[in-house]
Amino acid sequence: MIRLAGLKTLALILGLVPGTVMASDILTISGNEASESYSFEDLAALPQEKVLTDNFYVDEVTEFSGPLLRDLLDPFGVTRDDTLKMTAVNDFSVEIPVDDILDYDVILALRRNGETMSIRGKGPIWVIYPMDDHPELVAPQYNDRLIWQLTGIKIE
């Protein structure tokens, strides 16, 4: 926590908190001949889902909140046959089957324990699976899908 607080102070000093860059778009969704970009406000304006879970990259059960991925993708008409190519800020990418977001409450977490996340803190968007609610999700292949610093989703 002290570490996190320190990070936040630094981020504030450096003006790197999402608040100062809110005006810009942070996520682009494309596919099915459509493309849409979202700012932090756009995403925060959607209904927010809370997920309480532990995972491979945190030390204890943590509260994450953000829009449900399936709500966000609903206008794009995704089907179970589709695959989502999730890309991070440093061009790292993973593929997620649409089944995941339809079967589970997968969220694009915007907040961790109520606080927004900087790039330094794996933000501003971190894909979170409700692993504690579904023991079957506690598996290596799902760990890989917890992509942070998410910038793009491509429906394929």
Binding site: F56, I119, R120
Partner: peptide, 16 residues
């Protein structure tokens, strides 16, 4: 910033 975020993977979670 990305470099910063890399540091955290050594400091929390399973790998740590």
């Amino acid at each position: 910033n990305i470099l910063w975020s890399r540091l955290s993977t050594f400091e929390e979670g399973y790998v740590a």
